[in-house]
């Protein structure tokens, strides 16, 4: 096993596992970090599987815990979660550079991990690629129509929704209160899962900025956001003003869970990421 436990960042506060083979030191190293507050191995150990699969095709990786998560100590300062996460990602890139690796890194992140890498890439130009697993999704008209048709045609959904009617009514009212009272100053809203979402323009502008800089971006959406998006074309319709078509690859699979629970979906994701990386970052 070509894995080394490493400490880096201020006072060696951050903890990670560096999968390094020293074969292709000019290639970007893959950075993998927390999804939500799950420690660095990732949901269903997906980060470990990814790191080892990508090592087989010659990519080194560093999977690590952000400040205060997993094995990493909390930050001493008071930057706040978002800025601290970006700083931690930069600290990982610093560590790799100090150890003779390419100054180019690729971030693969799920959910909040995707948000963190996207944010970090805006500030740190060493991020040359992003694989975003369920980043923010924005309601598309096509998805609304498709979902409505599916709902009307599926008898199981009718039965299920009827039995959950009481619960849903309660949950929805709580979400409304939360989004109005807590997030109004932010300018964004919450998605169907209650996740804080930035304004569409902000998200689109960020992706446009990154693509203009030459950052390769691959987006993978799952059933988690199926109320917002069901097909890749809807993404480009939603962001038609941001010139992202042909610059960002989008894959939508409403038959897999947010965390890729089934082994089949995990294998499919690993293959897709492997192919995506090979096409963009190998000679």
């Amino acid at each position: 096993m070509n894995e080394r436990i490493v400490q880096f960042g201020d006072d060696g506060r951050l903890s990670g596992v560096w999968n390094t083979q020293r074969k292709n030191s000019n290639r970007p190293t893959i950075l993998l970090t927390n999804a939500g507050i799950i420690h660095r191995i990732g949901a269903h150990r997906l980060n470990v599987k990814l790191a080892r699969r990508l090592a087989d095709i010659g990519f080194d990786s560093l999977r690590f815990d952000l400040s205060g998560l997993g094995e990493s100590a909390p930050a001493a300062g008071a930057l706040g979660y978002e800025r601290q996460s970006a700083q931690d990602i930069s600290a990982a890139a610093d560590f790799l550079e100090e150890n003779g690796r390419s100054d180019s890194v690729i971030g693969i992140g799920m959910c909040s991990g995707a948000d963190n890498f996207q944010r970090a890439a805006l500030a740190d130009h060493r991020l040359s690629g992003l694989v975003l697993l369920d980043p923010h999704a924005f309601p598309a008209l096509g998805a609304a129509i498709e979902n409505m048709i599916n709902r009307y045609l599926d008898p199981y959904r009718w039965a299920r929704k009827f039995s959950e009617l009481k619960l849903n009514a309660k949950t929805l009212s709580l979400r409304t209160v939360r989004s109005k009272s807590e997030f109004s100053e932010y300018g964004g809203d919450t998605d169907e899962q209650g996740r804080l979402r930035p304004p569409k323009a902000e998200f689109g502008n960020e992706l446009r900025t990154l693509t203009k800089r030459g950052v390769e971006i691959g987006i993978f959406y799952t059933a988690y956001v199926q109320r917002e998006i069901t097909r890749a074309t809807q993404f480009f319709q939603t962001f038609s003003d941001y010139q992202l078509e042909g610059k960002v690859t989008v894959n939508v699979n409403p038959r897999v869970t947010h965390t890729y629970t089934t082994l089949q979906s995990q294998n499919m994701l690993l293959t897709e990421i492997e192919t995506w990386l090979k096409q963009r970052f190998t000679d």
């Binding site: 199981y156 959904r157 059933a223 988690y224 038959r255 897999v256 869970t257 629970t261 089934t262």
Partner: peptide
Amino acid sequence: SHAKYLADALDMP
């Protein structure tokens, strides 16, 4: 637990 999680997440029976 596995079945329930998938059913909830994928809206499947």
